[in-house]
Design a binder for these strands. Structure first.
Lengths: 130, 130
DNA sequence: AAAAATATCGCAACAATGTTGCGATTTAAT
DNA sequence: ATTAAATCGCAACATTGTTGCGATATTTTT
């Protein structure tokens, strides 16, 4: 496999993730980068960061796609089996690192990855009495 | 609210769902309809069917969106809180009506809806030794 | 059964999101 | 400094979904 390089654009994208408490869409990243690089470049950087397990992709109930930094603190080989919360009011997506669903599968299925997304109101919006 | 009508196109779409064991994307539906109606019409029919709780929307890990018939057998007021299985080999999506995850949420979140998608190999592809 | 009301349709146009090819540029290794 | 390879920018294209509007079809009213 190819070796990935550190470039200005990649560093900038990582900084945007670092600063953000929530998951970000391609468009949101692009806005924050303020023209530092091309739209296509961002796509390609996101692809590389995903291959390197630095970020992961989250797709929403409404079909929108976001990305968030991986939290490597716990496991060596990590699977993104944590939950995500999607606020229907502010549309922010946060990783719920500690929420892990338990479930019983019918046999004959081989489960490799799970995606567990909850939606409703986040603490912020809940407090704002919306 | 508007009253929805039964049209040729809507009936055709419903038949496609009836015949299918798995969830379908807009494109897949369009192919099966074989030019019976316009692309836009299919979108509008899907919208109406969702409002009428006849079908539900499923968005995948990879960002693709599919639709499936609702199973109304159990509850009067139903929430689509069952799980979906997405096969990484044949890309079929099936509803796992009986799989319901249990989980513990941090307080301060108000959960209204959940989306639980598992991916891996479906029984068919598992048996094919892939 | 005809007329009126309105839901639905088809078409065209547009918007958002994502992909690909390719020559130019930058990075990292020698 | 040279070189090989990864990355970039641009243009072009593909896919998916949306909107406006006049035409058509369905349902209700008379």
């Amino acid at each position: 496999m190819k070796k990935t390089r550190n470039t200005t654009a990649k560093t900038a994208v990582l900084e945007v993730f670092e600063k953000s408490r929530t998951a970000l869409s391609h468009t949101e990243i692009q806005k924050q980068l303020n023209g530092i690089c091309d739209r296509v470049t961002i796509y390609r950087i996101l692809e590389r960061l995903m291959n390197d397990d630095i970020i992961h992709k989250i797709s929403n109930l409404d079909g929108t796609v976001k990305y968030a930094k991986c939290n490597h603190s716990h496991q060596r080989v990590h699977i993104h089996n944590h939950a995500h919360f999607s606020c229907e009011n502010c549309h922010e997506i946060t990783c719920l690192e500690n929420v892990k669903p338990s479930y019983i599968m019918p046999h004959n299925y081989k489960v490799k990855e799970i995606n567990f997304t909850l939606s409703g109101l986040c603490p912020n919006c809940l407090n704002s009495n919306i």
